[in-house]
Design a binder for these strands. Structure first.
Lengths: 198, 198
DNA sequence: ACCTGAACACCGTTCAAGT
DNA sequence: ACCTGAACACCGTTCAAGT
């Protein structure tokens, strides 16, 4: 009577997990629910994942890949100005965060990097495009001289900060007044580009 | 035979919860464990909190107060320069995040703000000091003209971004090379102050 | 404002025995 | 590479009945 799942159960489980994540959030995500939705027994996931944490890590890795794609796409449709490209990339990042808030949460939980070294690799890779953007901006003379890695980190921190503050408490934090989040990104990155000190 | 807990059980529970949070992280935090450590029955917490979420919200509120105190203390021992005070405040924020990583995680989960309006108030209040700093920096001519609220948001996003990226994956993300986190804060805020564009 | 104790539905994880 | 089914220890939450 056994109904076998023929095919790629691993990916099926990940897809369902991501689906459930979007519907009910990380708190409500359970292995047993994922298995049930996939139509397999509650032990079946253990054929592909060591434990629940491993599932979350896999979801996080996929998240970094999706984020990179979104950012890349946003840059590629933008005119050849480093400033404009940086703004486009930043908006894409924040849009991703808002549309997939639970996913972002899984990506940036504190994770044992010794146990999952690949996650560090994937997350670093997602920074590469931003790093290239900074370097070409410098070569083109649009950005100042200075350590490009430091500049990349600063930009990432700013964008990530806007993103995470935007999803905490459903925008109340950053948006007590009536700005759109896109405005907040543009203004914040603008300040970073042009400076605050006089 | 009943052993009653005479005194402020509510605060005892919160203190123990914070303790456990630091020891084992948010995942391992359970109401039953808190109650046990407090020496009360597993139902006792329900006398003071509607549910587990309410406990987490109370911890978050306390976190914002502690964070404000740290930031305030850092500013007050710093010379009368807006730039220096901003750097001191930023370092204090990031230090708080690293020392109390799990606490920060609880503070910035996405929370139903309709249900816990006070949390929005407390979190906004923790921004007040930063807002004052920006305004006096402008009055003093150290900072540029511009909407002070927008500037405050940008600074907060930057500092918060550095803080959260620092605790994700135990510093691998922001620190593949050998910088200290204090350096990253100083450099990032420096870029925000002085600008990246040429 | 607490206590005990039972109960419920739900977890993650590990078996043993199957196909 | 799956299945069933049982089991374990642990959850959050809700009772009922006590002091």
């Amino acid at each position: 009577m056994a109904k076998y799942h023929h095919g790629d159960l691993r990916n099926t489980l990940l897809a369902i997990a991501t689906e459930l994540l979007g519907e009910e959030g990380i708190q409500a995500l359970s292995l047993r629910k994922i298995a049930q939705r996939a139509g397999v027994s509650h032990n079946a996931p253990y054929m592909h994942f060591a434990d629940k944490e491993a599932v979350l890590v896999a979801i996080a890795e996929e998240g970094f890949r999706l984020l990179s794609l979104d950012v890349e796409a946003a840059i590629s449709v933008t005119e050849n100005s480093s400033r404009q490209q940086l703004l486009a990339a930043s908006k894409a990042y924040v849009r991703f965060a808002i549309e997939r808030a639970a996913h972002l949460q899984v990506m940036f939980r504190s994770i044992d990097v010794e146990k999952y070294p690949n996650l560090a690799v994937v997350s670093q890779a997602s920074l590469r495009r931003l790093s290239e953007l900074v370097k070409s901006g410098r070569e083109r003379g649009e950005f100042r001289a200075g350590d490009p890695d430091e500049m990349t980190k600063a930009i990432w921190a700013m964008v990530h900060g806007v993103a995470t503050l935007s999803i905490a408490y459903q925008p109340t934090l950053l948006l007590p007044d009536r700005n759109s989040i896109e405005d907040v990104v543009v203004v914040s990155i603008g300040h970073l580009l042009d400076g605050i000190a006089s």
